[in-house]
Design a protein around this nucleic acid. Structure first.
Length: 292
DNA sequence: CTCCAGGTTCCGG
DNA sequence: CCGGAACATGGA
């Protein structure tokens, strides 16, 4: 392992704030898992590339030769300090940013991002993670690395071959039909994920929404987490609650489109970054007397 | 037991 | 065009 110098990053936070769902912590120490002096490592895949990442006292470590891949995935080039500096000065935003220092919006593979957020509908984060691992284990490609077996996220073609019932067996519930339909549409070329970067925001959203199980919220997540569009502002149940209770108290009947418009005006061109901080801060603090 | 979770689709007015 | 119910599953 070699150090990747420079940028501010909280690895644990960035991998566990609800934007990606498959990284696993390795035991902190072979004999003493509670030893805080030993760097905690995370193992996962960046597309097809097995990866181990660790952070100890601010120093980011990656396998030698994989520094560039890691730095790109972790988006260490994003000027997050400047984004935070230009954020709104209200108390809730500032508390969220302070609580999420070192959070980075990753650059995820597009299909993996689309698929995992299709499976995220009405699910809690741990459930999404469980589903992701089941799909990988059953329909992804196994890759041996560092003494364990990792599984790539199943391709659209691989999932398109699977029956809806087999997907339901992965605890997908009603999302099985959505994931299957989306996989078939991508596999058949009805939707070309590589064409998204050249489209403007509304065209990109419309294109993604052709996929079964993808609505405005999931499309926004994909634009933010896979295509690096920091202005994308997904409105889920948490953000909806925050905006209504903390910002638009004067408009109790605001539609989601109104919330989107307000967010764009208020949080600006990097609102998606702030959105992730608001989301995580709210989830960590809302009606939770004792931390855990 | 009831309620809710990083929503979308489908249906009736 | 718009609001509301249906949709599976598991944890709190």
């Amino acid at each position: 392992m070699v150090e990747i110098p420079g940028s501010a990053l909280d690895l644990h936070l960035s991998l566990n704030c609800g934007q990606v769902f498959h990284w696993r912590a390795l035991p902190a120490h072979p004999t003493d898992p509670t030893d805080p002096s030993h760097p905690r490592a995370w193992i996962g895949l960046i597309d097809q590339q097995p990866m181990i990442l660790a952070q100890h006292e601010g120093r980011l470590l990656a396998p030698k030769g994989l520094e560039t891949v890691a730095a790109r995935y972790l988006a260490l080039d994003h000027p997050i300090a400047a984004w935070c500096a230009s954020a709104p000065k209200d108390a809730f935003t500032q508390a969220s940013l302070a609580h999420c220092q070192g959070l980075r919006i990753l650059r995820q593979p597009a299909w993996e991002c689309v698929a995992t957020f299709i499976t995220s509908a009405l699910k809690q984060v741990p459930h999404i993670t469980q589903i992701s691992h089941t799909l990988r284990a059953r329909y992804g490609n196994p890759i041996n690395a560092w003494g364990t077996t990792l599984h790539t996220y199943p391709t659209p073609e691989a999932l398109a071959r699977v029956s809806e019932n087999d997907l339901r067996d992965c605890k997908l519930g009603f999302r099985a039909k959505n994931l299957l339909g989306a996989a078939q549409a991508v596999a058949d070329g009805l939707v070309n994920l590589k064409a998204i970067p050249a489209m403007d925001d509304e065209a990109a959203i419309a294109e993604l929404c052709k996929l079964r199980g993808v609505g405005r919220k999931v499309a926004m997540c994909v634009l933010l987490f896979a295509y690096g569009r920091m202005n994308a502002f997904p409105i889920d149940v948490w953000i909806d609650r925050i905006l209504r209770e903390r910002y638009l108290t004067a408009e109790p009947d605001a539609t989601v489109r109104r919330l989107e418009q307000f967010a764009a005006e208020t949080f600006g061109p990097h609102g998606g970054y702030i959105q992730q901080c608001l989301f995580h801060y709210a989830r960590q603090t809302w009606r939770k007397p004792k931390g855990k």
